[in-house]
Amino acid sequence: MLRLDGLRLVLAIVLFAGGCGYAFTSDFFGKELLAEIAIFAILAMSLDFLAGFAGMVSLGHAAFYGAGAYIYALLSIWQDWGAPMAMLAATLFCGGAGWVIGAVTSRTQGIFFIMATLAFGQMAYVYVFENRAIGGDDGMSGVPRLDLSGIGIDLNDPSIFACFLVVMAGLVFVLFVWLLRSGFGRALVGMHRNEARMRALGLPLIRYKAAAFAVAGAVAGFAGTLGAQHSMFVSPDYLHWTNSGLVLVIVILGGLESLIGPALGAAVVIALKHEISTHTEHWAFFVGLFLIVAVLAGGKGLYGLLASVRDWAAAKRQPGGGDA
């Protein structure tokens, strides 16, 4: 279960306020970067919910992201659905698909589970890549954005759109804090710690794993609808497994099972990626180095690092506790 301690709360507020502030003070490139960070933060939090808290490491997360993006694009371009309805439908579809795929893949364990999710993800990628009716490898452009002009918000303004995405990431954070404290969230954490005991206590494991997958899939799909609106374009790349890998790297770098760590990880990795790729195209090499250092340093990621600094400072402040 999640303990919303001071560090998590402070980090959440800093990231949120920093994001909103940066949206209105940065140049155009900065706003693009911020939008990408916010979307990856949502993806990373949903994968942390699944992998970090529920213990189900998936390599198929990008498929839900891509599915959300495509369904939103198709419904709004072909069917003229309003953006809110298209976003809702795409999110629900991804939740339903997550339920089914979760129920199937949860019958496997460990590496086999990872391979099963990877296989599902790549099946979705190939389907979209080969399907000329939805643009094949060219993708589709002309994806509209949500129209909030009725309440005086112009999402075509890059500052406002970036800030809107930061707010969405904030809402997703609140959703997961809430969910992880609920009976459902606690059951998932208990299952991660000791699956056999949870079953002996009466928990139907497959049903809860499928539900966890459904929630993570729905939120990743929701991130997809935002990604499609951000670039106003969808392509099979959204679904590619390397994206799933990148999100997993972000989660591990940020700190598994910390929820806010992966949001911080998204900011660091996406910023690094852009910073390094202005100098060399081998940005992944440096992110990889960074990942190795993070894993060797205890595997608790950036959040774990900050938590140990906090504990060290607390021990130092306490008289007599400094040498402990």
């Binding site: 279960m1 809430w178 969910l179 404290r181 609920s182 009976g183 459902f184 606690r186 059951a187 954490v189 208990g190 710690r193 949870m198 206590l201 009466g202 928990l203 809860y208």
Partner: peptide, 25 residues
């Protein structure tokens, strides 16, 4: 997990409250 958190898991499953999405046991 703490003793309380552990016992909560057992009690909430038995009481059918593991299904609750919104309430904190």
């Amino acid at each position: 997990l703490t003793v309380r958190e552990s016992l909560t898991l057992s009690a909430m499953i038995a009481l059918g409250k593991a299904r609750q999405f919104w309430r904190d046991p």
